[in-house]
Design a protein around this nucleic acid. Sequence first.
DNA 1: AAAAAAC
Length: 481
Amino acid sequence: MTTFADLGLDPKVLSAISDAGYTEPTPIQAGAIPPALQGRDVLGIAQTGTGKTASFVLPMITLLGRGRARARMPRSLVLAPTRELAAQVAENFDTYAKKTKLTKALLIGGVSFKEQDALIDKGVDVLIATPGRLIDHFERGKLLLTGVQIMVVDEADRMLDMGFIPDIERIFQLTPFTRQTLFFSATMAPEIERVTNTFLSAPEKVEVARRATTAESIEQGVVRYIATRKDMQAKEKRALLRALIDREGEACTNAIIFCNRKTEVDIVAKSLTKYGYDAAPIHGDLDQSQRTRTLDAFRAGTLRLLVASDVAARGLDVPAVSHVFNYDVPSHAEDYVHRIGRTGRAGRLGKALTICVPHDEKYLAAIEALVQKEIPRVESPLKGGDAVGDRREREASPPTATPREKQRDVPRRTAEPGPAEPRPDRPDRTDRAGRSERTDRDRRAPKPGRDGPVIGMGDHMPAFLTRSFKPSSEPADESAD
DNA sequence: AAAAAAC
């Protein structure tokens, strides 16, 4: 059995790993760390949840152990596609570099330049960035990339999806060609292949088994549903979602609910909240401090339902999500795999339920073609088949209500407790007071083994995200038009 | 058709 101690890492790193409670590297770590330590380029083909982040963070810390940072010339650079992923890498770095003197800066959008500039000026060993903000800093002349010895590209396939490849190529060209490159992607699309052929030199290719998309650890189901009336579809879908959540009961300790559109994310989150569910939205139009706070609360277990756009579909390391609900069928089949991969992680059981309206049947077919498996149809928790009106709401209507009374999307909590509608006793984590205040920050340290054995570092929970970004010199939200 | 990311 390989242990971290066998991989040739710096003793300080080993000690930090041990403090974090890990002993055994995951396959991607065992495969990527030794060649990385030899200074070789690495092409890692792995999905998130495989311990990928540590597979570049650990050797980076070891390699940078000697030497010191110079002003405005970072010695290494990590690029990630979203702000949350970049923050996650930064937190990993903090955890495993804590016994070294290495410094880092996190360069992401949505927050003030001021603090980022100050760190760069002072000189950092590791720069962790999203491409847009990095280029912004560079163009302002605040940053030199000619000192970069190690460059990491994380989640390259997602960079491709997001149109970042030209930026990545540009950044590559700003760094010395003698640099060492560690490049990670879940898939090798032709465009990715072209980039690696151009910018990697004789890479060691490390491929780990795709976490089976249809992992036994994820129970999947599709609820097909036809609206009673076309204009009722949205409202009925929300009722169906609630019914699905209720049917899962206590088994649904926490869940991510994916919607295809940002506006839908807002609407669904608001609706769930109205009905007394502990839910909050996350998507790219929300300001960074809110994104951070929401994700924080979700990770800490003080928020039960995260309603999300695909910003949260990939890479986010949220331990122990019991359920994923697809409020919409993702129109890119691959996104389905990423979304449901948020549950059933690290050997735990998870459940993924997808709502499919007639319009989305074609996307469902594409998904089933991709995963080469039929996703089991499960019965609607509402009245079977097409009669998916909100039975609960109708039953709950006061007797005086006329049938034509316009049903509004508001809670009728008073009438709810009926035999057909046991509101599940959710774990008492819906403490509102505790949510707005940033309390129990100290208790958010990673607990690697709390739900059974965890191999490697796939489950590390970044405490970094518990800090909110202060948009100190940023314009306030009521910006002049 | 949408989401993400720079202002």
